[in-house]
Computed example of a mutant assay.
Amino acid sequence: MPGSFFDSNILLYSASSDDDKADRAEALIVRGGTVSAQVLNEVANVARRKMHLTWVETRDLLLPFRKLLTITPVTEAIHNHGLRLAERHGFAIYDSMIVAAAIAAHCDTLWSEDMHHDLTVESVLTIRNPFA
């Protein structure tokens, strides 16, 4: 069943001081969707390194995402597909792993602020910037 997949930047914007972006991100997230374990790891990294959150605050930040969204692992097959996508489309490696995970999860939309807005990958997944 088609659905939404979220890049880490969308999850992080839901906690942003930019009210417009926070509201838009939150409205998308509460509708549900999918993230990969990699996305949660990226959010945790930013929470600790850039937002200077404690471990408790970091876990609290991640908890709603873990409850609202389906979490998919990054498998060897996703890794291999991600490498092919990076080569074919020029994606950064971590971005290509997110695209591959979204395709593997049968999502039709990948919400991301910093990937190629309106690019359709393999005729099944369209990257959309919710702030464009």
Rank of each mutant, 00 (worst) to 15 (best):
V99W: 04
A25C: 11
T126E: 06
G32I: 08
A44H: 02
G90H: 13
D114R: 05
H106N: 15
E57Y: 01
L61D: 04
A104R: 08
I29K: 09
D95A: 10
D19I: 10
V35K: 05
G82Y: 04
M97L: 15
E42H: 03
I98K: 07
S17H: 13
R88E: 11
A86H: 06
M97T: 11
K67W: 11
L62H: 02
L61Y: 09
L83Y: 04
I10G: 09
S36T: 09
I103T: 07
V46K: 05
L62F: 00
R84C: 09
L63D: 13
E76T: 13
E57F: 02
P64N: 08
E113K: 04
S112F: 03
Y13S: 10
R88Y: 05
I78V: 14
G33F: 03
P64G: 10
E113A: 15
V99C: 11
S36V: 09
T34L: 07
L61V: 06
P73A: 06
A101Y: 02
K67N: 08
L62K: 03
A132M: 12
S96M: 12
S123E: 15
V74T: 13
A37Q: 12
L85P: 06
V99T: 04
A27P: 08
G90I: 12
S123A: 14
R88N: 05
T126D: 03
L40Y: 10
V121D: 00
L63K: 14
S4C: 11
I71N: 06
V43F: 01
K21H: 12
M1D: 14
V56T: 13
V46M: 10
T70D: 15
F91S: 02
A47M: 00
R88D: 08
V39C: 09
F131L: 01
D7P: 02
K50F: 12
F65K: 13
K50C: 13
A44T: 00
I93A: 12
A101M: 05
V56R: 05
S16R: 11
K67S: 12
L125F: 14
V121G: 04
R24F: 08
I29D: 06
I29V: 14
F91E: 00
A102S: 10
T58P: 00
D95N: 15
V30H: 11
T54P: 01
D114L: 05
R59G: 01
D7R: 01
H117S: 08
M115Y: 07
L68S: 15
H106P: 02
D114W: 02
H81A: 13
G33V: 03
S123Q: 14
A77G: 11
H79G: 03
A105S: 14
F65E: 09
E113W: 13
R59C: 04
T75D: 07
H81F: 08
G32F: 08
